[in-house]
């Protein structure tokens, strides 16, 4: 694992939160609701200009959670987008690293997801020392595609997360067998986001179930 040190191009810089204290808190509360009520679609109220390939909810999630103490891994296209790396270096000061295994946060576009087992799943004594995966996806809805159950869900919920590869979907569903080890995911689309912590059980629904 090496720390990459992309140069900060000042021409690529944009503004972050107008009010870092209050906006940071508001976005955190949205994330807290998302994580404690898995599958709930959350719409962020604030609209910010976003750097390069990042969308509104990904950008605000990173602004509120990252700082110099968090190691960050970016999927290839994000990592080669100077507007993304310059702004993350400038606003968050997170070290950007080249190995996903050591990442506290991994940010990926849906079509270039890391292999799930290449992220940090924590250890049985410290399962919290694991990667949080943030995925930018083309569409998010509560259509009956996945059935979600577990802590934070009263009975069951449904969700459709577009753009995930078959391999990733199966790996994520199967990863639940290794609880409390695992990776917590935040899926972002436009200003919307939805979280699937490792405690959420996922079942692929059959197409005919959707009709009902």
């Amino acid at each position: 694992m090496a720390v990459l040190t992309p140069t900060v191009n000042s021409n690529a810089l944009i503004a972050g939160f107008d009010d870092p204290v209050q906006h940071g808190q508001q976005v955190f509360r949205a994330l807290l609701k998302a994580m404690s009520e898995p599958g709930t679609l959350i719409e962020l109220e604030l609209n910010l200009a976003t750097p390069g390939l990042l969308n509104n909810s990904t950008w605000q999630t990173l602004l509120s959670l990252l700082d110099a103490d968090t190691q960050l891994w970016l999927s290839p296209r994000l990592n080669s987008d100077e507007r993304v790396t310059s702004n993350l270096r400038f606003h968050c000061q997170s070290p950007i690293i080249d190995g996903s295994k050591a990442a506290d946060f991994a940010v990926a576009l849906a079509d270039e997801l890391p292999v799930l087992r290449d992220l940090n799943w924590g250890t049985s004594e410290y399962p919290d020392r694991s990667t949080t995966l943030i995925v930018q996806v083309p569409a998010l809805s509560d259509e009956p595609h996945w059935e979600l159950t577990g802590p934070g869900i009263e009975s069951r919920k449904t969700a459709r997360i577009a753009g995930l590869s078959e391999e990733f979907r199966l790996a994520l569903i199967n990863s639940r067998k290794r609880f409390p080890l695992g990776v917590d995911c935040i899926f972002c689309c436009g200003s919307k986001l939805l979280a699937l912590p490792r405690s959420t059980q996922i079942r692929e629904m059959r197409p005919e179930e959707g009709e009902a």
Partner: peptide, 13 residues
């Protein structure tokens, strides 16, 4: 931020 990250992990486990 450090405490918020810990809270999110706590909620996930």
């Amino acid at each position: 931020r450090m405490i918020r990250r810990a809270i999110l992990k706590a909620v996930a486990i």
